[in-house]
């Protein structure tokens, strides 16, 4: 794949992940189990939104067609979104949301650390800022997964169910394609496959402390990174893009 196209694709993948996950997490605002968690979730969503702005803005620059971060977020249709299927999964209960967050945070924390060494200075700078946020996210979500996994019988049961449910969406994080190869060869981004062992190490340790059993299956749902999504993304966009679509050209 030609390098600029690969770069655009990569930046959309990063920005769409944070956009869609931030959207999902923001759905909790006002509905969390306790005020302290409500505030913490909003902080996470705000961090993700801030990262979205940076990734998509750079994507627009790289693409060179004059599209802003808002244009990319609010005016693309489902097939142009490049996020992981994992992040568009519905929230489910609080445990399900936190487990999804944890699986993503563990991955994001690792990839951002690697991206701080990117040969593309613009990417390294975004990663530098985002890595600090991700480090806190993974610390917090790991702690909550451990607390709920090793809590009551009910919380343990719910967390195990969430893990089993979400596990098939893990594999997609580590499946590289031609675009990834191009960027890896240019020293811009790591190969997704190369992140797996560090992810496994962190996740296994947390699941262990949480007394949760890591599912055996390696089956992975894929497609999000290429624009083939679950049914859920369409509804997210219907919500998110409503005003921009219903009143084209208006300034907000």
């Amino acid at each position: 794949m030609e390098k600029n196209a690969a770069l655009f694709q990569f930046l959309c993948r990063m920005g769409d992940n944070t956009l869609v996950l931030g959207h999902r997490v923001s759905e909790w605002c006002g509905h969390a189990p306790v005020i302290e968690e409500d505030i913490a979730l909003a902080n996470t969503a705000l961090d993700l939104l801030g990262q979205t702005q940076l990734w998509l803005e750079l994507a627009g620059t790289v693409e060179g067609k004059g599209r802003s971060a808002d244009d990319l977020a609010f005016l693309r249709d489902v097939w142009d979104f490049r996020n992981l299927l994992l992040v568009e999964r519905p929230n489910g209960d609080f445990g399900h949301t936190l487990l999804r967050q944890f699986l993503f945070d563990a991955w994001q924390n690792i990839i951002l650390a690697r991206l701080t060494e990117s040969r593309d200075q613009r990417i390294a700078e975004i990663a530098e800022k985002a890595a600090k946020e991700a480090a806190y996210h993974v610390e917090r979500s790991s702690g909550t997964v451990i607390g709920l996994g090793d809590g009551t019988d009910e919380s343990h049961r719910r967390m195990q169910a969430a893990l089993d449910r979400l596990w098939p969406y893990v594999g997609e994080m580590f499946c590289g394609d031609a675009a990834d190869q191009t960027l890896a060869a240019a020293g811009i981004a790591p190969r997704p496959e190369d992140l797996r062992s560090a992810w496994d190490a962190h996740v296994n340790a947390v699941l262990d402390a949480a007394t949760l059993a890591r599912p055996d299956s390696d089956f992975a749902h894929k497609g999000g990174r290429d624009g083939t999504h679950t049914e859920h993304l369409g509804y997210i966009l219907a919500d998110m893009q409503f005003l921009q679509r219903a009143y084209p050209g208006a300034a907000w």
Binding site: V34, E36, I39, A40, N43, Y136, E139, R140, G143, G147
Partner: peptide, 20 residues
């Protein structure tokens, strides 16, 4: 003030609540 299950979580909650 805030509520938390233990001191470690209280520290995290404090970071989220009082250093925004």
């Amino acid at each position: 003030s805030l509520h938390a299950p233990d001191a470690e979580m209280a520290l995290k909650n404090a970071r989220d609540v009082y250093t925004r």
